[in-house]
Design a protein around this nucleic acid. Structure first.
Lengths: 109, 109
DNA sequence: GGAGAATATTCCTGTCAAGGAATTTGATGC
DNA sequence: GCATCAAATTCCTTGACAGGAATATTCTCC
């Protein structure tokens, strides 16, 4: 099974919700089940996918497992986003320039 | 059909490639077909999805359409990423602190 | 208005992934 | 060792979606 890339993993809303929850604090599976109101096997399955993508890590504690967020892979996403940040900044600049131009023109006649 | 969110739209590698290409300059469909080496109908379909997600915009020019990147929706993604940036910065800080601690301990004996 | 170009749409098929139900594995305490 | 709790795995069904092939639309030019 080809391990899925970060984009694919994040496409699922339940998984994003899990990550959001783990940002606050570590949680064990049963806690996630309560918070997400979804069946335990599904939570486990999503955690497995997240684990394969290195986005979470499990600390074993007897029969329980405490899951921790390991956000490093998200830096890749951040990196991908970089050039686009520039792109939308440029668009904002262009918009501003355009507005300035209109204001100038208005002042002129 | 419920229009897909940014995460879902970006999960497809071909669509990301289209966005990457449009970052350089506007392109018409036939140019994208050449660059992507994929069939024209598929390109059109992906462009449609990207358009619904407001990630691209078409300028009509006779029978051609020039597609432009409109990166604004990506700001949402950037926003989602925000708290995680903090999270991984914290983790780096913790790591550094830990290394400092080890160095200190080493110096002490 | 007909031909031909550029692009969009439709139909079809295969694949993959999510969720439900049931079961299994693993660890603990008695 | 057995009952029990926590979590993982398996099996199944269903829906979504990407890609291919064929066709339809829309515009331009003569």
């Amino acid at each position: 099974m080809p391990t899925r890339d970060a984009f694919t993993v994040l496409a699922d809303p339940t998984r994003r919700q899990i990550l959001d929850l783990l940002r606050e604090r570590d949680l064990m599976v049963s806690e996630l089940v309560d918070l997400l109101r979804t069946a335990q096997p599904n939570v486990s399955k999503h955690l497995k996918v997240l684990g394969e993508a290195q986005l979470v890590n499990a600390r074993v504690d007897g029969p329980r497992r405490h899951y921790t967020l390991t956000p490093e892979p998200l830096r890749e996403l951040d990196k991908w986003l970089g050039p686009y940040r520039r792109a939308w900044a440029d668009r904002l600049d262009a918009l501003e320039a355009h507005l300035d131009e209109m204001t100038d023109a208005e002042g002129e006649h």
